[in-house]
Design a protein around this nucleic acid. Structure first.
Length: 733
RNA sequence: GCGUCCUUAGCUCAGCGGCAGAGCACUUCGUUUACACCGAAGGGGUCGUAGGUUCAAAUCCUACAGGACGCACCA
């Protein structure tokens, strides 16, 4: 046994041994007798990393936590399944490849065409995938590679189309012209959750609109405004009646304006009066829908003004704004302008542009439509009962069927559902699941009101016969992620895996994707299966640097898990991400901390070495002393404590207890006190001392395994009687 | 506007009714055959502030201050 634990050399070899053994696969565990056939299942999906590049330290934290859960379950005899996979991440991947190609070759995706571009994306995705797989292995993750999945592979595609078709037939997916978040840069819609808000200071204008003064930060949208809205209870405007018509002087001459009284107006904001632009503002759109008002487009999809704007037509809004303000002033319609008005501008967080709300015909998931849930295993909703997606999502958590840890996120979840609007699922990008809807190409009417059922076909397979053309749009990436817990198990087929492992036991992920993903999984699983996708949700925090800053390339404070693992060993990296952090709280990490746990790995190695060096397999019957018994009892006690913590997902305290017992008690106190007896001439006493120390070590190595799988596996193989045995499937108890 | 979290040793954080804890850093000592990626000893805290509940509060409640964040609004 070497004096130093050589993780650089050993880790890959150990991983290969595990992988070859087949024990990552629960079927093999049953076949080889390490799990009973009728054992309870423990199943979990790996939140599939995006194929946009490399894994970061946050992924490492996720892998560490999940691997602890999985190894603990496996050692406890559960039929344990951890399914790995990657996510095509539609818009994020496409944006990355587009920018790479543009930087290197100066070409856009439109220059290359759909087919060639998609080929390039596939190549990139494949490369990222291979990288990710290497990194997942490096971290020691005991995932079942034989079941690996990709959100865009054949099987998952079938699942996506099936899901779409069922929801479409039920009326839960519809196509409609509604206001969406339009990204003029990437030329696609994005969902509400993909927005990011940037604070911006702009001038704020007060404009004369007939007898009213209206405030606006966006004069460029005002050309089509012909409704003036105020709160029905606003006494200042009591003399105007709802529906009253007034002629007012406006930017391009006199227009007929209509007074609208609506409670959506905030009396305290500005003058309490506003004009509305339903085509380019969500609130205005809602008022217009409610009151059946006209809607007019002012800005085109590239952010340029339409002919309605008169002489400004064709100008980009950013250039037009000051000119338009100037014209208002010239016409005597500008009452005043305030500088430095602060407001938030929505931006596409996936590297896109500034969002311009537009009315567009898109595909939506209707979260408020009633439907009949035929077979329900969701508590609080009976089979055959009518419900809505919203109600269903709420019920699953409210009734405790799904438990979120830490509990405070349940509140956040409910709050989000209360504010949930229909989910826009179509994207005008190329990389992703193409919407499984076809139109008759000879009918040019699909965007018109005259649409009939003959013109449109939705199905899992393309329609027979000629003349059909598929919808050019693709699905939001979260649509395929939403069915991940069961698409990975073979759904829509009722496979053995699906019947055995769904619902999954735990979903472990970062709190930042509670809405994106967790909520949508509950939605999809609820509707398609009448079941929850998982029993528990464990949310970890974001990994930050030692000063608590977010890690980013521009700050230069990123810590790469791979190079850290190479420098200090994967075991050290894992432990440093688990100890000293609580669920849902951000994790701070520094190289110092990792180094500290590398020292612990060395400590384990040396203590084990010492125990082995002093162990002789004598036949002498050991004569245990009271002290020996006390030590053994102590370790038993430790196991009870650690088990209790692990059952509660309290990895911090479990790991911390093990760390301190091993170092402070076992290495510093126990071994020291045993030293004289280990070489004593009194044979039975010597045997007792050796035996006691060995037992203490064995138990601790076992308990440490979920946390530090590599070093413990290596040591385990060196302990007497363990030749050829694998610690990963050793019994915990 | 609605809501959440954080404030504990120099730094990073656990603890969440019952004696103030850890890692790193710091000080002193130690070349004892497991380990200097080590050992022994040690210094360092009004647990953000002010009230309250309680036999007992870092822990529960209220208010305030500072910081981070989520959602909504942003005419």
């Amino acid at each position: 046994m070497d004096t130093r634990y050589d993780y650089q050399f050993l880790e890959d070899k150990i991983y290969e041994k595990w992988d070859k053994s087949g024990f990552f696969n629960p079927d093999v565990c049953v076949k080889k007798g390490v799990a009973r056939k009728n054992a309870k299942k423990f199943s979990i999906v790996l939140p599939p990393p995006n194929v946009t590049g490399n894994l970061h330290i946050g992924h490492a934290a996720m892998l560490a936590i999940e691997d602890i859960m999985v190894r603990y379950a496996r050692m406890n005899g559960f039929k344990t399944l951890w399914i790995p996979g990657t996510d095509h991440a539609a818009i994020a991947t496409q944006a990355k490849v587009e920018s790479n190609i543009y930087k290197k070759e100066g070409r856009t995706r439109h220059d290359m065409g759909r087919e060639e571009f998609l080929k390039r994306v596939e190549e990139f995705a494949q490369e990222s995938h291979d990288n990710i797989v290497r990194q997942v292995k490096k971290m020691g993750s005991s995932v079942d590679w034989s079941r690996e999945a990709y959100t865009l592979d054949e099987k998952r595609s079938l699942a996506v189309r099936t899901a779409f078709k069922r929801m479409y037939d039920e009326g839960l997916i519809y196509k409609g012209a509604r206001i969406v978040n339009w990204d003029p840069k990437m030329q696609t819609t994005v969902s509400d959750d993909e927005l990011e808000y940037i604070e911006e200071k702009v001038p704020f204008y007060y404009l004369k609109f007939g007898p009213f003064i209206i405030g606006t930060a966006r004069p460029e949208t005002k050309f089509g405004d012909k409704y003036v809205v105020m709160h029905p209870d606003d006494k200042r405007y009591a003399k105007y009646r709802d529906g009253e018509k007034l002629e007012v002087e406006w930017i391009n001459g006199p227009i007929m304006a209509t007074v609208i009284k609506d409670k959506a107006v905030d009396m305290k904001f500005g003058t309490g009066v506003m004009t509305i632009t339903p085509w380019h503002d969500a609130t205005d759109f809602e008022i217009a829908e409610r009151r059946r008002l006209d809607k007019e487009q002012v800005i085109d999809q590239y952010g340029k003004l339409l002919p309605l704007a008169g002489e400004f037509a064709g100008l980009h809004i950013s250039k037009a704004r000051p000119l338009i303000a100037e014209k208002f002033k010239e016409r005597g319609l500008l009452q005043k302008a305030e500088e430095n008005y602060t407001h938030n501008v929505a931006v596409n967080q996936r590297g896109g542009g500034r969002i311009e709300p537009q009315i567009k015909e898109q595909w939506f998931v209707d979260v408020n439509r009633e439907f009949l849930l035929k077979k329900s295993k969701i508590k609080g909703i009976k089979s055959g009962e009518k419900t809505t997606l919203k109600k269903m999502m709420k019920a699953a958590v409210k009734n405790g069927q799904i438990k979120i840890l830490p509990k405070r996120f349940e509140k956040v979840y409910f709050h989000w559902i209360d504010n949930l609007r229909d989910w826009c699922i179509s994207r005008q990008i190329w990389y992703g699941h193409r919407i499984p809807v076809w139109y008759k190409s000879n009918s040019k009417t699909r965007n018109q009101k005259s649409k009939t059922s003959k013109d449109i076909y939705a199905g899992v397979k393309p329609p027979k016969g000629g003349g059909w053309e598929q919808d050019p749009d693709t699905l939001d990436t979260w649509f395929s992620s939403g069915i991940w817990t069961f698409s990975t198990l073979g759904w829509p087929k009722e496979t053995k895996d699906f019947l055995e492992f769904h619902p999954t036991s735990v979903l472990e992920t970062g709190y930042d994707i509670l809405f994106f993903w967790v909520a949508r999984m509950i939605l999809m699983s609820g509707y398609l299966l009448g079941e929850v996708p998982f029993e528990k949700v464990y949310l970890h925090g974001l990994v930050r640097d030692a000063q608590g800053r977010k890690m980013s390339k521009s700050l230069g404070n990123t810590i790469d898990p791979l190079s850290m693992s190479e420098m200090y060993g994967a075991d050290a990296v894992r432990l440093s991400l688990v100890i000293g952090s609580a669920p849902g709280n951000d994790i701070k990490i520094s190289e110092d901390k990792i180094r500290g746990y590398r020292n612990f790995a060395t400590k384990i190695w040396n203590a084990s070495r010492f125990v082995l060096l002093n162990y002789s397999e004598t036949r002498t019957k050991p004569k245990f002393t009271a002290d020996d018994k006390k030590r053994i009892a102590e370790v038993k006690d430790l196991k009870k404590r650690v088990s209790r913590y692990l059952d509660k997902f309290d990895f911090n305290r479990a790991g911390d207890s093990l760390y301190h017992y091993f170092w402070d008690i076992f290495a510093d106190k126990a071994i020291e006190s045993f030293k004289p007896r280990l070489n004593s001439d009194n044979q039975p006493d010597r045997a007792a001392a050796q035996e006691t120390v060995m037992r203490m070590l064995r138990e601790q190595i076992k308990m440490l395994h979920p946390f530090m799988p590599f070093v413990t596996e290596e040591i385990w193989g060196l302990l007497p009687g363990n030749e050829g045995k694998l610690l990963m499937v050793e019994k915990w108890k």
